[in-house]
Amino acid sequence: MATTTQPPKAGAGQGGENTRVPSREEMLARLATRRNPETQVATARRKANTVQVWPHLMIRQFLATIVVSLNILLLAVLINGPLDQLANPEKTPNPSKAPWYFLNLQELLLHMSPDLAGVIVPSLALVAIAAIPYFDNKPEGVGVWFYSRKGIPITIFTFIYTFVLESALVLIDAQFPAKTWFANIVNGFVSDSSTQGFIVQAFAGYIYPLSIMAILTGILILIMAKVWKANRTEIIIALFTGFVASYTLLTIIGTAFRGPSMNLFYPWAMPASH
């Protein structure tokens, strides 16, 4: 505010006899008076609707820094990072697990071929997440939590939908592995064992998991479009929520429910790894 109203100080006149170099403040004040009325109105309006970053944003950042740092310090005082025995390439622990944030991929690995689980599915997911703004490109809804009134119910519904169906799929695949029951079927039609292996691998590793993923996603989109009368943005909210729910659920299963030989156990009945 002060910048726009301060007149140039005496002695800072234009050229002439007084050749003193004007101070920084005087230069700023001079620049301010040079603005045209329209700009000044716009500036005034902008100022009425805004607050200064110092102190309004800075104080939040300052407090967040202190709170987070103290919490990390406290955690570090209370809990030690794990350190196992010296690495031994001869001795494979059972189970061998990836870091927790990759356990969702390791969980996928149990249900489909390794290239699909470890590379193709996660890459496609990341590309899809990055590509969202190119499909959902209307400026409406910027800065609004959950976009519309339907946003929150859609998010909750999709979370439950994903959790229930995916848990069921994990349990079914543990009880009736696709490889086993499909091999029994193929056994009746094909006698050559290498052809058998190829067909079973193609089905259990690719066709079966891919169709399940496609069908579940398709049903979700259909429910959104037909039942919820969702528009494109709301369908994308459902799809993204499906991803977040899958990531969360599979991470939880991989971390807390998988024990020796990657079999399923309750966390409270988990046998020690060996």
Binding site: Q85, P93, A98, V119
Partner: peptide, 14 residues
Amino acid sequence: DQLSYWAVTVGTNM
């Protein structure tokens, strides 16, 4: 350690 060695083995095998 064993934890890190085998986690990275599993990860890079993928």
